[in-house]
């Protein structure tokens, strides 16, 4: 029986391709626009990064690769057996550079983010009232335009923040690429999945 792997064509693609190469596993070439590609015993689905946990949770894909940031937001019920080590970044709270804003200094934190659950959980968990402005992208411009006091977003090098005159105030979580596995597949297709997991484990 073959396995279905959910991947995103986003920032984790290059790292994933390298990992599969090191593990001696097939990987579709980057030129194709096809979203479903079968190679030998593996079938690859290319979906939006935020959707990878969903495909895996429902068992449409047996496993997948997703950032920890995405997993925190998706709150999906999946196994996360491997930290794959690449795609490292941090989720942080950032505010306009030099602003007086401090999360615990205001009655309600207005935060713009692509991670509404993570952002709300971060502030509510500390007893701070929060108003989440959900955006699909270009989050960095929101505070400067008065849409929010701060943002919660991922930072790799910090360059995007600096170029948009933002500075980090606090850490929310660390992230890296994770292998996620469907709970039912893990048991019902144990043989096939465990050899894939072991091949990837050795290659990390």
């Amino acid at each position: 029986m073959s396995l279905t792997v959910a991947l995103s064509k986003g920032k984790l693609l290059a790292g994933t391709q390298e990992l599969f190469g090191r593990a001696g596993l097939p990987f579709p070439d980057g030129e194709s626009r096809r979203l479903v590609v079968s190679l030998g015993e593996l079938r690859f689905l290319f979906v939006k990064d935020m959707d990878v946990p969903t495909y895996v949770e429902y068992g449409v894909a047996d496993c997948g690769i997703a950032g920890r940031d995405v997993l925190l937001e998706a709150e999906s019920d999946v196994f996360e057996p491997l930290d794959l080590g690449f795609g490292r970044c941090r989720l942080v709270v950032a505010r306009p550079a030099g602003a007086h804003f401090a999360p615990d200094g205001s009655s309600t934190v207005r935060v713009a983010t692509k991670y509404p659950k993570v952002a709300a959980g971060h502030f509510l968990g500390r007893g701070l009232s929060v108003e989440v402005v959900r955006l699909a992208g270009s989050v960095e411009i929101a505070p400067g335009l008065g849409l929010a006091d701060c943002i919660v977003d991922v930072v790799e090098t910090g360059r995007t923040l600096r170029e948009n005159d933002l500075e980090e105030v606090e850490d929310v979580a660390e992230s890296s690429a994770r292998l996620v596995v469907n709970r039912a597949s893990f048991h019902a297709q144990r043989t096939e999945l465990s050899s894939l997991v072991e091949a990837l484990r050795r290659a990390v």
């Binding site: 029986m1 429902y58 068992g59 469907n182 709970r183 039912a184 597949s185 019902a188």
Partner: peptide, 9 residues
């Protein structure tokens, strides 16, 4: 209880 074809118990 799990079975092939359904992604959850």
């Amino acid at each position: 209880v799990f079975a092939p074809g359904l992604g959850f118990e």
